[in-house]
Every structure is written in C-alpha cells, then in structure tokens.
Computed example of a mutant assay.
Amino acid sequence: MSSRLNEIRMRDPFVLEVPSGGFVLFGTTDTNLWGGPATGFDCFTSEDLVTWEGPLQAFRPPAGFWADTQFWGPEVHGYDGRFFMLATFASSNPESGPRGVQVLVADEPTGPYVPWSDGPLTPRDRPCLDGTLFIDDEGGPWLVFSRGAEGVPGGAAGPADGEMYARPLSRDLKEAAGPAVLLFTASAAPWSKPLWFPDGVEPPEELNLAKDPLFTDGPFLIRSEGGRLHMLWSSFGEEGYAMGVATSAGGLITGPWVQREQPLWARNGGHGMIFSDPQGVRRLVFHWPNETPDERVKLISVDVSDRGIQLRT
C-alpha cells in the first residue's frame, strides 16, 4: 500500500538510509501506545521520500518476551554489518522492572528484528526511555537516553526534573560497559517548561506522571562538518511539545552541554532526528502535532554547522 507522509499516523519517526539505496521509516505505530497491550513496530520504505510503501512488520514480540506495553521510539542503525534497533519497552507486571531501552537486531533493514541484549540496557532503578546510539572517536558505542521524572515528586525547589544520560556499551551492543553519566537536566534549557496539556485535553492516566514535571526525551546526536557535536532533544515549551538543541562544549559525549536559548521547533511537535536526502540536503523528521491520534510525520530541511542546527527558510 502506498502512502504520503501526511497519511501515516506515527510518533517518534526515524529514517534509516539503506546502503543499497532507498529509505526505511520507523516509529511508534501501536494504536494503544500509552498503556494498552502492545503489538510491535511497523516500518515503511521509500525511494524518493515522497511515496512510502507499507506497513511492514519490523518487530513482533516473541513468546516469553518480558514487555507487553509502551513499545516506543524505535530507531535503527547499521553497525558491524547488521542492523540494530534501540527501542523502549515496558511491562504491565511490576516484577519485570521499570520501562527501559533494549537492543534488537536484524540482518535486513526492515527486519524482522529479534532481541539482542538481555533486557534493557538502561539502569533499572527508575523508568527510562528513548535510547539513541552514539559512536565516539575511538569507536566506542554509547547509549544516550532519557530518565523521566515519573515517581519523583516536585518539592519546594520546583517541578520534578527529567534527565539526559549516556552509558557506555560493549562493542557488540549486548551489554552495558559502565555506569550511566548525567549529561544535563531539562531545567538546564531556558525554553523548557513544565508539562501541560491544552484545555479539555487530559493526559493519559497510564503515564503516571508526577505533577507538572519537566522532562527530557527523544535525543539524537549529530556532528557538523567542523566536528562540533550537537544533540537534538525534546521537552515542553511555551507552545506545547518542542525540540531544542544542545552543543557539547568539549566535543565529547560527556559534555559539558550548552543549551540553546530558544527551541529549534516550538509548535507542538517533537522527537526528531536528522538524515541526508539523495541531494545531500539535511532533513529533520519528527511528529506533528503531538495529540493522539492526530500525529503525522513531518519532514523539513535544516542546516547543520558548527553554530548549531537551523531550520531552512
């Protein structure tokens, strides 16, 4: 079945450029995405970024899989001759532990993907989400992820504060290779505001969010041609869900990270990533608007330079 992007309902889109040609679009595709029983992840393929074929079944949980809900934010990277998916999973069984990011693997870009790591590679003391892969200058892989403010009540100092972390991984992406390192908190960005919903829109009860939390999600890392390391990430701003940019002052994944004063995209859309089209133009893909079930995939052009990430006008 052929579709245009404005016809595909999807959150957290991620576009993989296939080495042999063409593109694969992944994202959160479950109907019961907040807390109902999960189905898996679907994907779509395209040769021109205009017409997309699908959906194709990229991942369906095998028998005995530990998670059964909140299948979110799949992203796929070609690495060591195979394709690795990093995705968020949760279980309705408290004994299975909190939500976390697990690594899956496939021999083909569209899958089928199967579990690779033994459960989540994020810390198990608090719910985590939205993992992205970063390879440092020595070839060492890192998992960059968000740790939510859920279950952490705000006090006199203000709302609960979401956090962004990086954790080194083993070369085969199967295991954590060290402790997680705090990169920054949501409150470090001047544009980040406490979570809010428009009048008449109730937040999903299944999220069990602390009252008025600041939060981080949707990290994606990219280097400029001059070697500057930038991170695209999402939170809430004055106009709803938004994307901001942070830059590593030292050029390392561990930072220190300097936040851009204003969001890159402020108008009720986010969880984006950047890739290059066949003409070499940088493209930002994200979901907009943020309300379920109206989310659609949006694609716009951007410039990436030592100064940061800018929307093309």
Rank of each mutant, 00 (worst) to 15 (best):
L173P: 15
D125E: 15
G139F: 05
A160C: 03
A160F: 03
D136K: 14
A156R: 05
V105S: 12
Y113K: 13
V105L: 15
A157K: 06
A106W: 05
E150V: 04
R99H: 09
F134M: 10
D172S: 10
T110Y: 00
A166N: 05
G151V: 00
G100P: 09
D118N: 15
G154E: 15
Q102N: 11
A160N: 08
P120S: 02
L104T: 04
P168L: 06
L173K: 09
L143T: 05
W142Q: 07
W116D: 00
T122Q: 14
M164N: 07
V152M: 09
A156C: 00
G100I: 08
V114Q: 15
R124D: 14
G97W: 14
T110C: 04
D172L: 02
Y113F: 14
V103Y: 08
R99S: 07
D137Q: 15
S117Q: 07
R124C: 11
L143G: 12
D125G: 10
P159W: 04
R126W: 15
G162T: 08
G97Y: 09
P120G: 02
L143I: 01
S170Y: 02
E150R: 03
P153Q: 11
P141Y: 12
L121I: 06
E150A: 01
C128W: 01
V103G: 11
P159M: 03
P109C: 05
L143D: 04
E108H: 11
M164T: 01
P153N: 13
G162M: 08
S96F: 01
S96D: 12
R99K: 10
P109E: 13
R171F: 09
P153H: 08
V101N: 15
A106K: 08
G131M: 02
G155W: 00
S117K: 15
D130F: 12
W116H: 15
A149D: 03
V101G: 12
L173T: 04
A157Y: 13
Q102D: 03
D137E: 15
G162D: 10
E138I: 00
L121Y: 05
W142S: 04
P123Y: 10
T122S: 15
V101H: 02
L129W: 13
L104A: 07
L121P: 12
E138G: 13
R124V: 13
G148K: 11
F134R: 07
D118T: 09
G111W: 05
V152W: 06
P141F: 08
L121Q: 09
A166T: 07
V101F: 04
C128T: 04
E138K: 06
P159D: 01
A166V: 01
S96R: 14
F134H: 11
E108M: 06
P109A: 08
Q102M: 08
W142H: 12
L133F: 11
D107M: 13
P123T: 13
G151F: 01
I135V: 07
P112N: 11
G158T: 07
P112D: 01
G100D: 12
G158S: 03
G97E: 02
W116P: 13
L169M: 02
R167N: 05
A166F: 10
G154P: 08
P115C: 07
W116M: 03
G100V: 03
S170H: 09
D107K: 07
G140L: 12
G139M: 03
P120H: 12
D161K: 00
Q102H: 09
V152C: 08
S96V: 12
D118A: 11
F134N: 02
A156E: 00
